[in-house]
Design a binder for these strands. Sequence first.
DNA 1: GTCTCCTTGTGCGCTGATGCACAGAAAACC
DNA 2: GGTTTTCTGTGCATCAGCGCACAAGGAGAC
Lengths: 294, 294
Amino acid sequence: MENWDEIRTAFQVARLGTVSGAAEVLGVHHATVIRHIDALEKRLGSKLFQRHARGYTPTEAGRDLLAVAQTTEEQFAHLASRIKGQGETVSGELVVTSIAGIADLLTPVMVSFQEKWPEVRVRFLTDMRVFRLDYGEAHVALRAGSGPEEPDNVVQPLTRIQSALYAARSYADRFGCPTSEAEFADHRFVCSDSETTRAPFHRWLRATVQPDQIVYTATEPAALEQAVLSGAGIGFMSVFRAAGNPDLIQVLAPRSDWESPLRIVTHVDLHRTRKVQAFLAHLKEAAKEWQFCA
Amino acid sequence: MENWDEIRTAFQVARLGTVSGAAEVLGVHHATVIRHIDALEKRLGSKLFQRHARGYTPTEAGRDLLAVAQTTEEQFAHLASRIKGQGETVSGELVVTSIAGIADLLTPVMVSFQEKWPEVRVRFLTDMRVFRLDYGEAHVALRAGSGPEEPDNVVQPLTRIQSALYAARSYADRFGCPTSEAEFADHRFVCSDSETTRAPFHRWLRATVQPDQIVYTATEPAALEQAVLSGAGIGFMSVFRAAGNPDLIQVLAPRSDWESPLRIVTHVDLHRTRKVQAFLAHLKEAAKEWQFCA
DNA sequence: GTCTCCTTGTGCGCTGATGCACAGAAAACC
DNA sequence: GGTTTTCTGTGCATCAGCGCACAAGGAGAC
């Protein structure tokens, strides 16, 4: 049963009873309709219509086709209206991906977005690997730092994550707490494991203190935070995560050259849909309220 | 949502994930697949796929299309197998039409046919008007006499209906009963109303007796029979209907030139189907058992 | 790192489907 | 009964869609 267009032609003939009428509805010449019917009947090896001077009367097989194609046409019409409408409505899945570190910043935003648009099902993906927007894995990605620019992606700056140098209260009790860079000499530090980390504050730290002062490294940002909180050493944390934690002492205040840009990345095809636009607007609005971000 | 073939193409792309795979399954060039997708997306005004180096990943709209077209393909496959098979099976409707006069001859045949093939639903149509086989109104028609031969109809002689001249016992009681043509002079007769009747026995009667001897005419054969049975006059009846009726006296025995041929007429397209062939065989077999038919 | 394979994408020549015109026939209408 | 209308059906010219060839690019193997 290949060639669905011939089924559609036969459907109109069965529905209207004449080749001419079907041709008019289909917007083709009646000769084309006759050829479609002939081809379809030949392939099926069975007559679909009784031909006579007043038109084509469907046989039992033709009536069967009529019933099947009738529902097919309705299904396709519904499908078309759904697809045409879905770019305009805020509904269906919204897949957002980001680094795990800003999950607690984003989650309230997405929850309130879902409450605002109850038709939307939010999927929030935080994974080690970078989700690829051009594979359709996510609608919106939130990425820190300045990653590679892919041609089909539209990138917008959202905010800048402020970071500062913190020490746990347990660390200060044991080793004291420096009040400026000048007092760093005898202190121990926590830093990203990678020598070539993109984070500007980690590069600053490696350039500022002696290598043997870095007593604890990890690849995972969450592990670094845990190390600082556990008193392993002085280390960087984003201000919004450290704020409100009574166990942390801010050793150095945030500096603009430690800030890391947070960018919104969307695929160009999805960017123009109302759903994505609505989320972006909602996200930007929420970001204005964020404390400790520049 | 015109052009169902493009939907079918998009369906295969969504199912397989690549243009190349879909092209192979569809038996077309991959350029054709790309063109179909492009045209469909342009018409819908919405992307169905995310294009990337590894193939096409369906968007939400594409997944919607996949689900709809999946069931469509299954429906069409079932339809095709039904249509292809129905010419080979003895099932569905069997529409038989005949003159009302032989209904009691045919009904047992059709009942036993339905019992033999329980899948068949028999529709037996007896109506004043002649059903047109080329309009698909019936599968099999049983017609008496030699009607016009239509080109697309295949005609087979089934049997010959014997007719004889009968008088009701009530008539014989009042007017006596002739034993030969020579005694017809003072008798009254019942005949078809039409001067140009095709029935050979009615033509013979009009040629044999005086016009004023024909005291009762009717157009409907059943009405003529009722007239004879009521004693209005002597008239023709088919032997199989008169036989076994104790109120009827056979005035003249059946003659071969009064016989009326009973023909099976089928449309050429339907004639070759197994269902019609099965019924024809069944009918011919039953006709062998018919008494009072030549 | 390089190499190879697989994929999409596009311009060009061509074939097959389409539209056109006309014929023929049957039904409907006057 | 004659006329008109409407429908099917077919040969022919045209054109759109198709296949082909080639290019480009990315993913994965080695």
